[in-house]
């Protein structure tokens, strides 16, 4: 016979402000927005291979698009606000979920065999922290120009070339580590978002995992092409 008891204290259902599933849905949607941005960002970066004027003109276009109907930099600021809100929501949800997970599983097992689940799945949280630190550095480097050796507003090509100069190999190395972390994050994240939004199934799972991996690899290669091309002298 099954006896169902109330918990001691018997308050019944303690309502949380948000269910874990709602937080996961927030993470999936904000993650998707970030991935869309990354695709556009990568395409923009690759214009460096078309030459200085192509890249700098594109950067100027992003600021002047919509003029004179819209003020200077309107589109850019809309994108920045949407992205910032997305990333803040993504991180806040992840933090709440990680804290709940730690509370839900307070005692470790004495025997710990090889953990099932991919490396990408297991490194989502710390990988995310690395990516956040990188974003902060990246904005100070190539958006505000504070940490850039050239740091001239609008001179995108020159800023990038001086940033990844062979003598600054450690910057290229840090970018490489961060972009690879993004790649791993997306490999699990894209599929995980599809699952969270209820679009996965037994029949589709394999194709979705392959698609996630392909997108992750394309973005990783696309983003690393620029610093490597500069460091190894293909772009100067």
């Amino acid at each position: 016979m099954v006896t169902v008891q109330k918990r001691p204290g018997g308050a019944g259902v303690r309502r949380l402000r948000n269910t874990s599933l709602q937080l996961k849905i927030v993470m999936a949607v904000t993650g998707a927005i970030s991935v869309l941005y990354l695709v556009l960002h990568m395409i923009g970066n690759l214009k460096i291979f078309l030459g200085r004027s192509e890249l700098d003109t594109y950067a100027e276009f992003l600021r002047t698009v919509g003029e004179p109907a819209l003020p200077y930099s309107t589109l850019l600021w809309i994108i920045r606000v949407v992205l910032t809100v997305s990333i803040v929501l993504h991180i806040v949800s992840a933090t709440i979920l990680a804290r709940r997970a730690a509370r839900a599983r307070p005692v470790r097992y004495a025997a710990t065999p090889k953990t099932p689940g991919s490396y990408a799945a297991r490194t989502m949280r710390w990988g995310g922290v690395i990516i956040l630190l990188f974003i902060v550095y990246h904005i100070l480097d190539l958006t505000t120009g504070t940490l850039n050796p050239n740091g001239v507003g609008g001179a995108v090509y020159d800023n990038v070339v001086s940033d990844f100069a062979p003598s600054r190999w450690y910057v290229t190395l840090f970018y490489t580590l961060a972009v690879v972390a993004v790649g791993f994050h997306l490999r699990h994240g894209i599929w995980s978002a599809l699952q969270t939004l209820g679009h996965s199934s037994g029949a589709r799972r394999h194709a979705q995992k392959v698609t996630s991996t392909v997108i992750a690899v394309v973005l990783t290669v696309g983003f690393l092409a620029v610093p490597f091309a500069v460091t190894f002298g293909l772009v100067a």
């Binding site: 874990s20 996961k24 979920l97 839900a104 689940g117």
Partner: peptide
């Protein structure tokens, strides 16, 4: 959630 179970991270374990 009220019982104190955590959220899913789709690890498949």
């Amino acid at each position: 959630d009220a019982e104190g179970f955590g959220g899913c991270t789709n690890t498949g374990a």
